[in-house]
Write a protein that binds this DNA or RNA. Structure first.
Lengths: 190, 190
DNA sequence: CACACAAACGGAGTCCGATTCACCTTATGG
DNA sequence: CCATAAGGTGAATCGGACTCCGTTTGTGTG
């Protein structure tokens, strides 16, 4: 599928420009219009649609890249912190990330709460990252068993969907509830 | 505001028909078109817009009614169950309700996760219902303090937004996490 | 009962996005 | 340098929500 001949030079440049433009535009306004994104990238809408099936596909790709970065952190956290601390820190990190513009929060929500195939990769990656944290926690007797990364992902969807006034404060409290809920009944008492 | 002269008979009938039609249509398809809803109600779109500011306002009203019912249950539950059991049961009930068509889930999510003024009433009502449960739990030493109904509401948004394949199973696990997270550190150990 | 008229209705038309497509432009392999 | 297929363009189309105004109708009044 994705293994056709390499893109022509100008095509690769435009594709890149579109992703950059989309990231900027979405940061400024979660429902930036395709015309606006194309304009920023210095191309016409037709070009945008040559590279991305739909507007949503473009948005998905932008956030897939963000998520990829995010997913690299659990492994890093586990080298420096106890599994439960790593888990807590990662949850808090997600809240921070959701703060980078409503758009990111919305995308994370789609990743976490739906089966939209556009986000399949991102979802798998994220679930895997959480599995890593949970497994380490369970192994250390600090986290209850029976909860998959996928489930925690779903629970987090609620945080990322928040877009109310005092949302960040609420998000932190929710992390506390989830974190304590995950520790509940673990082998060792925190 | 809402205290003009009573509606003309036909107007009241149409308004009612629109709400019924919308409930049916939304149950069948969460993004039913306004034309479709109007057709089912046997009126033209103009009439729909005479009664409801926007499509969203109509949808909000439909679900506000559902929510109103739901909000009456905590009080009832508290007369029959211990506060923690009542809390757990109510959370499970929400999951069931979210199951009544994706539309309801989506609306509940809007109620829980956003500040959309359309849902102000529903949100307040729901938060009040949860406060009641939490307060009873705290008083009995079964639930941790410091968590408002509003916060729990936000946390639940994640559940209602679920629309993935194994979502119900996931929802139940999430309720477990939240429930245990809310009991964590309560005066008495469960 | 007939009339007056404000309230309510109908539905074609407007607006505003995303998406398409027929026709140009331009890398690039030979 | 050419041929040509990949790539680009943007006016046109499509699909929704929403508006507007001429027409119809319920209802209070004489």
């Amino acid at each position: 599928m994705s293994s056709s001949r390499p893109l022509r030079a100008d095509a690769r440049r435009n594709r890149e420009a579109l992703l950059v433009a989309a990231r900027e535009a979405l940061l400024a306004d979660e429902d930036a219009h395709v015309e606006e994104i194309a304009r920023r990238a210095g191309v016409a809408v037709g070009t945008l649609y040559r590279h991305f099936e739909t507007r949503e596909a473009l948005v998905a790709e932008v956030y897939r890249q963000e998520v990829a970065e995010l997913c690299a952190t659990p492994a890093r956290l586990l080298t420096r912190h106890a599994p439960d601390e790593a888990l807590r820190t990662f949850l808090l990190l997600l809240v921070e990330h959701a703060a980078v513009g409503r758009g990111m929060g919305e995308a994370l929500e789609s990743i976490m709460a739906t089966d939209s195939p556009v986000f399949d990769d991102a979802r798998d990656e994220m679930a895997r990252a959480l599995d890593e944290l949970l497994a380490a926690g369970v192994a250390a007797g600090l986290v209850r068993g029976g909860m998959s990364g996928r489930v925690v992902l779903r629970a987090l969807g609620g945080i990322c969907g928040l877009r109310a006034k005092g949302w960040k404060d609420d998000a932190l409290r929710i992390v506390t509830i989830l974190y304590d809920g995950l520790r509940y009944g673990a082998a060792k008492r925190g």
